[in-house]
Amino acid sequence: MTNARPAHPPAPPADSARLELFGLPLDVISLDATLDLLGGWMFTQSRAPHTVVTLNPELIVQSRSHPEFANAVQVADLVTADGVGIVYAARQLHGLEVPRAPGFDIVAGLMKRHGADLRVFFLGAKPGVAEVAAQNAARDYGITVAGVHHGYFDLPEDQRVADLVGASNAHLVLTAMGGGRQETFNQYWRQVLNAPVLIGCGGVIDVLAGTADLAPAWTRRMGVEWIWRVVGDRKRWNRAPRLAQFVTLVRAEKKRLGR
């Protein structure tokens, strides 16, 4: 096994700018440009692995106390703005309007564009859920299922699972094991996973399986789907303090910068 940390952090995509938020990169790139970029990565002969992070406020707060997680984001090949909190931070700290490219929209967009040409490995969620997500995606988008595996395995099993994914010849690996765990797994095992695009996608597999609801379209257009999720799901209420902490971080950093 090789810990495939790049010798130097990856350069941002050629057609985008790269900002920094609290020591983490953020690529200023639209959803359409993201889909173009990932499509190019997936269907080149080299099949070089690329990690993708969809950044949200919770990930920023978590990364501040988990150096390995922060490193996985710092060396990611693409970091997109997942929600309105990141847009807010970029506006406050850099004076820029950053387009959003949320995880579900990236995944659904790639499957719609590439259909049967796209081999997808579904890695994550509770046992049985990835299988249903894969069946639904094959039915709805016509994609080819490269493989499935649940996300409930411990660190000693990482290499076994990485080897399984690596043997699948997938173009796209959807890793849904929770913020932090999924990003560090993708980064550490990127060479073994042997897929051109590795994306930490949180609850996307649950949404595809129908075990979690996609936020209403109006909340997604406004970028406030996280409010809808937190209010509507008691299990998410413990996440609200992280969001409040993020706002406090942004205000303190804005004051420090004199903006």
Rank of each mutant, 00 (worst) to 15 (best):
P49I: 05
P10L: 10
P67S: 10
L19E: 06
A76Q: 03
A11W: 10
G210I: 14
I199L: 11
R47I: 05
G147V: 03
L118V: 00
G258T: 10
A162N: 03
A162C: 04
N3H: 15
A11D: 14
A137R: 13
A209K: 09
E253G: 02
L214D: 03
A7N: 12
Y88H: 11
G40D: 13
D27W: 11
A72K: 03
G83I: 04
P216S: 03
T54G: 07
D163F: 00
R160T: 15
F153A: 00
N71E: 14
F69Q: 08
L78K: 03
E225R: 03
A252T: 07
W189E: 02
A11Q: 15
V53Y: 05
T51M: 08
D32N: 14
A125H: 00
D32Y: 04
Q245M: 12
R256C: 02
A72L: 04
T34W: 12
V247R: 06
R91Q: 14
G223K: 02
A72N: 04
V173Y: 06
L59S: 14
E157I: 12
H150Q: 00
L21V: 09
T219P: 09
R160Y: 09
G210N: 10
D140G: 07
H66V: 12
H149S: 09
W218A: 01
L110C: 07
A33S: 15
L257R: 15
F104V: 15
V28P: 01
F246R: 04
P102W: 07
S30N: 11
N169P: 00
L155I: 12
W226T: 00
A72S: 15
E183L: 02
P99W: 07
V165C: 06
T44I: 00
L198C: 03
A101I: 10
L26P: 10
G83W: 09
P9H: 08
A14Q: 09
R234K: 12
H66M: 13
G39P: 11
R5L: 15
R18I: 00
I86P: 00
T144M: 08
Q182N: 03
L38C: 13
E157W: 01
A162T: 01
V84K: 03
T248H: 13
F121Q: 08
K126M: 14
L198Q: 11
D77Y: 05
R64P: 01
A170C: 09
V98A: 12
L198Y: 13
R251L: 10
L78R: 05
W228M: 00
N169I: 00
L172R: 08
G179E: 07
Q191I: 00
Q187C: 12
S46G: 05
N136W: 12
N186M: 04
N238T: 15
